[in-house]
Simulated assay, not measured.
Amino acid sequence: MAQRVNYMQQSPELFKKFLDFSMALKNSSIEEKIEDLVSIRASQMNGCGFCLDMHVKQAKINGESELRLYHISIWRESTLFSPRERAALAWTEVLTRLPEHGVPDELYNRVREHLSEQEISDLSFSIMAINAWNRVNVGFTTVPGSSDAAYGLTKAGLS
């Protein structure tokens, strides 16, 4: 598979601004471990090989266990995730695939038990960002692993 369009070269100013937005999320109220889980789960749901590959490697570099990485797609059945992580994953799924009639109050209230209003807001911006990255990389068939050296992902030890 070859990349259709190199969007970084074709739209450098937009790419830089969106990258700046994504980097600003690193200073949000959401911890890195949850950011990794969210990026992986949304990328799984959207079928984005490039982002899934990138964020699994990033999570590994950040100390995530391999078993938990394997369990992200089955987080509901797994005993490896905390209630806070489960809330973040539930919020990720509902915002990634918006229900026809919006987010149910029951789900929001369950998430609110584990995350503050600011955390839900910050998490929502993270979910928006990964979904946008998924869409551009799926649309332009960005090759998984093609930016590993540029993003320092070779140190994950996964190849």
Results as ranks from 00 to 15, higher is better:
residue 2 A to W: 07
residue 6 N to F: 10
residue 8 M to Q: 15
residue 9 Q to C: 04
residue 11 S to L: 15
residue 16 K to T: 14
residue 26 K to N: 10
residue 29 S to G: 10
residue 32 E to N: 15
residue 40 I to S: 11
residue 40 I to P: 12
residue 40 I to Q: 08
residue 42 A to F: 01
residue 45 M to L: 15
residue 45 M to S: 12
residue 47 G to S: 11
residue 55 H to P: 11
residue 56 V to H: 11
residue 62 N to I: 06
residue 66 E to G: 14
residue 72 I to S: 10
residue 75 W to A: 06
residue 78 S to Y: 05
residue 79 T to M: 07
residue 88 A to H: 02
residue 90 A to W: 02
residue 93 E to W: 01
residue 96 T to K: 00
residue 97 R to Y: 09
residue 101 H to P: 00
residue 101 H to G: 07
residue 106 E to C: 02
residue 111 V to C: 05
residue 115 L to Y: 07
residue 116 S to V: 08
residue 118 Q to E: 11
residue 118 Q to I: 01
residue 120 I to E: 07
residue 120 I to T: 13
residue 120 I to F: 04
residue 122 D to V: 04
residue 124 S to W: 00
residue 128 M to I: 09
residue 130 I to R: 06
residue 132 A to Y: 07
residue 133 W to E: 07
residue 135 R to I: 08
residue 135 R to P: 08
residue 138 V to P: 08
residue 139 G to T: 14
residue 141 T to W: 01
residue 143 V to T: 13
residue 144 P to M: 08
residue 145 G to N: 09
residue 146 S to W: 08
residue 148 D to Y: 04
residue 148 D to L: 02
residue 149 A to V: 13
residue 150 A to G: 01
residue 151 Y to C: 01
residue 153 L to M: 05
residue 154 T to M: 07
residue 155 K to A: 09
residue 158 L to S: 12
